[in-house]
């Protein structure tokens, strides 16, 4: 187990932490900008993966009506339903694994990103000392950069980034971003109980993360918001703004209206 932890730190967490320190020095010694910068860098690196994941989920979403038909057709034979569904996926070139495989590959990266932010903030004195063991002292450029930057300025507007937000603004932002994310990614469910579950998830996830934000360093909440916003933008531009446009009838500036979403635009073209 210690070997796995060591390998994890060496390959995932420490490179990210040092990149974070570098971004902090380059982005005017502003830790919020550094977090946003690192989130963008990681998003760019994982872009091909996330893009495939979004497309795959969208394709599966588009096939839902046909799957419902199959479910009706083979009502009592579950094996036949799954065989026919697989055949349908095959026919349309959809690999159901592509929905979750890229996510599994990304998970270590996101956890590493999360850990590096947590480590850099050093919310306890013990944690701050631990930072010394993670920095690239042997690379002169990195060493000079870190020496100039540390201690990091963890104050941003009303926030002390190593402590929770005292005014609860970030928890609200986290809930809002997670809710929008859920709205965009939610798949129309075939049966009512599944639909209820999707509905529950749409509220449960944002609220859970909102509660966690009440307790953790606000720097992490900044990362959640930044990451969520980037995810929403990527999803929106790839598959259309879907439920968001529906949920916000008057629209937000810059956001296409319901009738202008990609799906509808495609429909118009066909006509």
């Amino acid at each position: 187990m210690p070997e796995i932890t060591g390998l994890w730190n060496l390959l995932i967490m420490e490179p990210m932490l040092n990149l974070l320190m570098l971004l902090y020095a380059l982005l005017f010694n502003n830790f919020v900008l550094a977090i946003i910068g690192l989130t963008i860098v990681v998003r760019l690196i994982t872009f091909p993966l996330t893009q495939r994941q979004i497309r795959s989920m969208k394709s599966m979403q588009d096939l839902q009506p046909e799957i419902q038909k199959l479910q009706k057709k083979y009502k009592k034979d579950r094996e036949k339903v799954s065989a026919a569904t697989m055949e349908l996926y095959k026919k349309h070139g959809v690999n159901p694994m592509m929905g979750c495989l890229p996510m599994l590959v990304q998970m270590p990266i996101w956890i590493g990103l999360y850990q590096s932010i947590y480590q850099a903030l050093g919310s306890t004195p013990e944690q701050f000392i631990g930072l010394s063991q993670r920095l690239y002292h042997a690379i002169p450029f990195m060493h000079d950069m870190a020496t100039r930057s540390i201690p990091l300025n963890s104050q941003f507007l009303w926030l002390h980034l190593a402590r929770p937000d005292p005014f609860y603004i970030l928890p609200v932002l986290v809930v809002a971003t997670f809710w929008l994310q859920q709205k965009l990614t939610a798949q129309p469910a075939a049966d009512p109980s599944q639909a209820q579950m999707t509905q529950t998830m749409q509220w449960m996830m944002p609220i859970m993360f909102g509660f966690i934000t009440l307790q953790v360093a606000s720097g992490l909440a900044v990362y959640w918001v930044a990451s969520g916003v980037l995810q929403i933008v990527q999803q929106g531009f790839t598959t259309g703004w879907g439920d968001i446009a529906k949920a916000l009838p008057t629209g937000i500036p810059g956001l296409p209206k319901r009738e202008e979403t990609k799906k509808d635009a495609r429909g118009k073209k066909k006509r």
Binding site: I111, Y114, Q115, Y118, Q119, S123, T124, E126, Q127, G130, I212, Q215, V216
Partner: peptide, 9 residues
């Protein structure tokens, strides 16, 4: 996930 940071005590 919250505990991934390595303990904050």
């Amino acid at each position: 996930l919250a505990g991934c940071g390595g303990g904050g005590v």
